[in-house]
Amino acid sequence: MATSVKVLKRPKLNLLEQTYLPQVMAGLVTTFKHVPQVKDTVSYPEEKWIPRDGYRGLHRLNKDEDGRIKCVACEMCSSACPAHCITIEAEVSPWEDREKIPKRYDIDLLRCIFCGMCEEACPEDAIELTEIYDFCGYIREDFIADKDTLLHIYDLTADGNYYRDLERSQKLFFTGHKGAEDREVSPEYTRNLLKW
C-alpha cells in the first residue's frame, strides 16, 4: 500500500501573535467566567452530596403503618436479582393477615450491583433502594446486610433524604453497625483486615 505524506507548513505569525497575549487573555476570560458560577465539587466528607430522588444506594426493608416488616418472604427479589446476592429463609408469620415473613433476609452488598431489580420485582413494596451511598465496613461480613440492619436503615431513611440531616450523615454509616463499635480488635481481626 502506498503511503501518501502530507507536508504541513508552519504558519507565519504576525507580531501581535508572536507575543501570545491574545491567547492568554482568551483563556483567562473562560476561567473568570466560572468564578461566580455554582460549584459542583463538594468537600466530602465535611460536606455531603445529596443524591436526587430515585438514586439507587443501600437497601432498606420497609415497614407498614403498624411498624411491622412488609416483606412476606416470597423470594421474588432473590429470583429477580441478577447478582444472586439475596438469601431468604421464611418462617410462619405471627400476624393474622399474612402467611409468612422472612426469618432471615441477607443481602450481600459486595455482590450487589445496585440495579434495583429487587425493588422492581417486589409485589409488597417491601424492599427499596435508598439514597445512602457512603456505607463502609472493616471486614467482608460487615457487608452482609441482614434483616435487622435493613429494617434499621428504614428507620434512618423513613423521614426523607438521609443526607439532608447533615449531622446524622456526618457519622459514616457502618453496615455492620450492630457489632462494629464494640468489636474487639483481636490479632485475628487484624489479620482479617490485612487479608484484602
Binding site: I88, A90, E91, E99
Partner: peptide
C-alpha cells in the same frame, strides 16, 4: 410449608 421457592 414455607420452604424455599420451587424454582430454586
Amino acid at each position: 410449608l414455607y420452604k424455599p421457592r420451587v424454582w430454586n
